[in-house]
Nucleic acid binder design. Structure first.
Length: 695
DNA sequence: CACGCTACTATTTTT
DNA sequence: TAGTAGCGTG
């Protein structure tokens, strides 16, 4: 680290000297550290930015600064973690410098990879009409490989398709050997090592033959073009003079390789992140990536942002204490100039119902005091934990929207309809063909495979399926499907309403199948109506399908339309989806051991540390009000309840609790803010005994 | 060969 | 709890 300049700790005079052109208007709204970062010149820059320290603001000002300095916007690449973040950042930058920043290339790593692959892939052997598979598609394709190779019939316990895909994806994103991944995470499967390799080889071959690209391929192909194809690498890398990366703590080593390739010529890379908020290791991210950045990019300047503009000091005190238990990190302690504020509440409820009731009552109270609903959020560890609350909110007619855990695109009926569009775009899309064929009455696994084999033999000619002779019982369905596909192929591509129209045509066949397959069809039909409405906004099937795979709608609101500002609705969100956001009041529910941290993370130190960081992310979303709630008698209907149940999260240890105020809800809905010192859970001896046997 | 029935199991987070 | 693997029937 000898060639690393650390900005932290210099005198004010030195700081001022580092702000070149510090008088310019752009930087007058920044503090000294932010200004240095925003106006930094060329070369690698690492901004370690604690929660709420104006990270986004700094990055936007840096963007504006580069443009004012004369860098052409289209020569700047801005990589963010979500599409939401990219849009927000570009919109804010536009407010700052006007239309000048239009043309900046922004988006997620995956979306950017997609753009580049469409443009340069053909030269590297990837035909540019490939289709993108989402995770579910990838798992389904692996399943086909698995079945083809005969593992489905195996009597022995064999890994499920989700597991196979996870291991594959982890291998690509982290570079760990399959052996090591199995040993560390799936010791029960180490003997299957060779079978994993066989399936992965077959999966890779299938993707190639079917012209399919999965999420991991997008990154891998980008990295490989940069590393192994000098002429293409030259063309790609020369597209941009500056690369800015947000949320760097959530990148993985494959993404770091990409960045090295992109910046080999100029080293103009700025990354912003907070190692304390690294919460995506399940996607191969490692906070070591940000710790290692100075080694990867020699000559790195590090700037730390510690002044928090978001939360009151009591909220920061509790959050700082919680994260101070973390083992490995860039030490930074957040502080604020904001004075006052009340201590975060620690609310112990008797059970889930009381927790729900407390949260709803308190939300209404805050609302009456003038806090808009959209300034309030309820956060939780996993999507299903808000079920009870959602019911109560609906009963009490409080509008809300839920982020994360939205399974819209994963719903079988939505995927079914999309499969029709996909085979039109890519006739070789085996996963979609299989899905569609299995829908038809009279066609099962064997017939579906036979039909696909025949189509492959006929080089995926569009007439191949029409010529397949199906068993008599499937004759009708086959005729209908052939007619539908012919009709869809005849759709003029210039018609702007064509994607939505395509779906309408597909539904003439599909809705009937749906009615026979499910009992409750209304919600499913409503989903399809929504899908049709979204499709109306896209000019082509290809654009629609790619957008859905890379930028899935994140909340019901994305589907319903209307911007955040217009709709005064409460937000329910997983802690993950809440990252980068802030609210006036935040509730964290289910802060019980076994729930947060989740039971499965408890026996693994690294996972446990990540859970701690995740809770830190949740707490630091709050500006003025923070309440953490825990139902004490959350007796579980789930079976393996061998973790410490009915206890406060282990992260809320004595030190953290001292920074909080204990609050106990009373039965009448009011709260008692000076409760008994240590409220213990009343016990129900019979319930405990029943629980022993899982009854 | 498809399909309905039963028993079982695994259960986070997201591009 | 829901999705699915396995099995027996038509």
């Amino acid at each position: 680290m000898t060639d690393t300049r650390v900005y932290e700790g210099r005198s004010d005079a030195q700081r001022a000297a580092m702000v070149k052109g510090g008088a310019r208007s752009l930087t007058s709204e920044l503090n000294a550290e932010q200004a240095v970062a925003a106006t930094f010149g060329d070369g690698p820059l690492l901004i370690i930015a604690g929660a709420g320290t104006g990270k986004t603001r700094t990055l936007i000002y840096r963007l504006a600064h580069l443009i004012e300095k004369g860098v052409r916007p289209e020569r700047i690449l801005l990589l963010t973690f979500t599409r939401r973040a990219a849009q927000e950042m570009l919109a804010r930058a536009e407010r700052l410098v006007g239309g000048a920043c239009r043309g900046v290339n922004g988006g997620t790593f995956h979306a950017t990879a997609h753009r580049l692959l469409r443009r340069f892939g053909a030269a590297a052997g990837v035909a540019n009409d490939f289709s993108i598979m989402d995770q579910g598609d990838a798992e389904d394709l692996i399943q086909l490989s698995r079945a083809q190779l005969g593992y489905a019939e195996s009597k022995k316990r064999f890994p499920r398709k989700e597991t196979l895909h996870y291991v594959y994806s982890r291998h690509i994103n982290t570079g760990f050997a399959i052996d090591d991944i199995l040993r560390d995470e799936y010791s029960q499967f180490v003997d299957y090592h060779d079978d994993f390799l066989k399936i992965f080889a077959d999966y890779t071959r299938r993707k190639g033959e079917r012209n399919l690209v999965d999420y991991d391929d997008l990154l891998l192909f980008w990295a490989t073009m940069l590393e192994a194809a000098p002429s293409i690498a030259e063309r790609i890398a020369s597209l941009y003079d500056h690369v800015l990366v947000d949320e760097y703590q959530d990148t993985n080593v494959l993404q770091a390789r990409i960045l090295r390739g992109m910046c080999r010529r100029h080293s103009n890379i700025t990354v912003v992140g907070d190692d304390a908020q690294s919460i995506y290791s399940f996607r191969g991210a490692s906070f070591r990536n940000i710790l290692d950045f100075p080694r990867q990019f020699p000559g790195t300047t590090i700037i730390a942002l510690e002044q928090n503009y978001r939360s009151t000091q009591p909220i920061l005190d509790a959050s700082n204490t919680l994260i101070s238990r973390a083992s490995e990190r860039y030490t930074k302690t957040l502080w604020t100039k904001r004075s006052g504020g009340e201590a975060p509440w620690l609310v112990t409820a008797q059970d889930e119902q009381q927790q729900t009731r407390f949260v709803v009552d308190r939300i209404l109270e805050l609302h009456e005091e003038g806090v808009p609903l959209r300034e309030i959020a309820v956060l939780f560890r996993a999507g299903y934990m808000s079920a009870d609350l959602e019911i109560e909110l609906t009963n009490r007619k409080i509008p809300f929207e839920k982020w994360g855990g939205l399974k819209f695109l994963e719903a079988a009926h939505v995927k079914d309809v999309l499969a029709f569009l996909r085979i039109l775009e890519n006739p070789r899309d085996e996963v979609s063909w299989y899905r569609i064929l299995m829908l038809l009455p009279g066609i099962g696994d064997v017939t579906a495979r036979a039909a696909i084999d025949l189509m492959a033999q006929m080089a995926w000619d569009s007439r191949a399926f029409g010529q397949y002779r199906v068993p008599a019982r499937a004759r009708d369905a086959h005729t209908q499907l052939v007619a539908l596909l012919d009709q869809l192929r005849a759709t003029p591509l210039v018609d702007m309403a064509s994607v939505s129209g395509d779906i309408a045509r597909v539904r003439q066949l599909y809705d009937g199948l749906l009615r026979e397959k499910y009992d409750r069809v209304e919600p499913r039909l409503a989903d399809l109506d929504q899908l049709q409405a979204i499709a109306g906004g896209y000019p082509s099937r290809e654009a629609f399908l790619s957008a859905l795979a890379l930028e899935p709608p994140q909340a019901t609101q994305d589907l319903a339309g209307g911007s955040d500002e217009e709709r005064d609705v409460l937000v329910l969100s997983t802690a993950h989806s809440a990252k980068g956001k802030e609210w006036d009041a935040v509730f964290l529910i289910w802060a019980a051991d076994g729930w947060f941290p989740m039971a499965r993370a408890i026996n693994d130190d690294e996972e446990l540390e990540e859970e701690r960081r995740l809770m830190y992310v949740a707490l630091t979303r709050a500006r003025n009000h923070l309440a953490v709630t825990c139902p004490l008698n959350s007796y579980s209907t789930r079976r393996s309840a061998d973790y410490a149940i009915d206890q406060l999260s282990r992260f809320l240890d004595r030190g953290v609790r001292e920074k909080m105020e204990r609050v106990v809800p009373r039965m009448d809905g009011s709260v008692d803010r000076e409760p008994e010192p240590a409220p213990s859970a009343p016990i129900d001896l019979r319930a405990l005994l029943r629980g022993r046997f899982g009854a």
